[in-house]
């Protein structure tokens, strides 16, 4: 059985082979090869193809735009952790979640902005800007969360309020992307469900890891992890399938992911790191055989996989040609 599993892993990780061919010891080579997977330089897209062929979205992923990817990730998993911790009235989780969302997510958001000093202005156009609304939600989260952590009050009303707010924050990044009609793969209806489960899933993994290191081995929680993972996998498939069938430009994006320039990144990052490996660990722990080490490693892979997923969703978005 073990042998079979190893073989299976070998088989599905065959795209990884090229990493081995590069000198593993050479740090620069690794960086280069990772860069190549996610940002292929041999892109066939030429300056004269701009808006004549499907044109890649770049502003929210290239150069400084990369911070937005991290900012969304941190705010969302922080909220996910907070959300989970709230159910279990786990104060350390609340604090960490609150800090990740606001301090880590917030500061990376600041790094992203062209004019961080004008951050406060983002709150002005609540009437039509999803971004402004998101900022308000985070602001409310900051206040209410602080209140809850400080007072350790878990009354249903507050929990309900914060629960909704957490979900909104979890959705924040993808919701901001989702309203952009110009990019059909973001505008897809399958984006929001995926975003919710991704925030919860990653958050829950931190939560579970915290539980495990704090001694209270949360074997009871594993059932949730199993559930979240399955839903997570299901919604990734739904995202791919639903987006593929939504419009021409969206189809193009999915093609880029599955068989285009980003395919390597997708299969290694999302499928292997984000799905297969966590699934493998989950199977090992199936039936409550949990262990802190495995939970830790699973969390690390889930992080990597989810970061890859978010990166690739952002990166694979294309604009519809104008002529």
């Amino acid at each position: 059985m073990k042998q079979k599993i190893i073989e299976f892993i070998k088989k599905i990780s065959s795209p990884l082979k090229f990493i081995k061919t590069e000198k593993m010891g050479n740090k620069q080579n690794i960086i280069k090869s990772v860069k190549n997977i996610f940002s292929p330089s041999d892109s066939s897209f030429k300056p004269y193809d701009w808006m004549i062929k499907s044109t890649p979205q770049q502003e929210w992923i290239k150069e400084k735009g990369i911070f937005l990817w991290l900012a969304f990730f941190f705010s969302e998993i922080g909220a996910g952790l907070y959300f989970m911790s709230m159910f279990f009235q786990y104060r350390l989780g609340l604090i960490l979640g609150w800090l990740i969302t606001l301090v880590l997510g917030g500061s990376v958001h600041m790094l992203y902005l062209g004019n961080p000093k004008r951050f406060w202005r983002i709150l002005t156009n609540i009437s039509s800007s999803e971004l402004a609304r998101g900022m308000w939600v985070i602001l409310v989260f900051a206040i209410l969360g602080f209140f809850q952590i400080f007072t350790a009050k878990f009354n249903p009303f507050l929990n309900c309020m914060l629960g909704i707010i957490c979900i909104l924050i979890i959705m924040h990044g993808f919701a901001t992307m989702n309203v952009i009609k110009a990019l059909p793969s973001w505008n897809s209806t399958m984006v929001l469900p995926l975003s919710i489960i991704s925030g919860i899933w990653v958050g829950s993994q931190i939560f579970q890891f915290m539980l495990s290191v704090s001694g209270s081995l949360a074997s009871g929680f594993e059932i949730w992890s199993e559930l979240f993972l399955l839903v997570y996998i299901g919604l990734i498939v739904f995202y791919l399938w639903g987006t593929f069938h939504s419009s021409e430009a969206a189809k193009k994006s999915i093609n880029i992911l599955l068989k285009g320039e980003l395919a390597k990144g997708f299969y290694i990052g999302v499928i292997v790191l984000g799905i297969v490996v966590p699934l493998f660990f989950t199977l090992i722990m199936w039936g409550g055989n949990v262990n802190a080490g495995l939970i830790f490693f699973r969390m690390v892979f889930v992080f990597a996989g989810d970061l890859a997923l978010r990166y690739l969703v952002m990166k694979s978005a294309v604009y519809q040609p104008l002529i």
Partner: peptide
């Protein structure tokens, strides 16, 4: 001219 030449297929 150079930069628009690059925009021209």
């Amino acid at each position: 001219i150079d930069e628009v030449s690059e925009l021209c297929p």
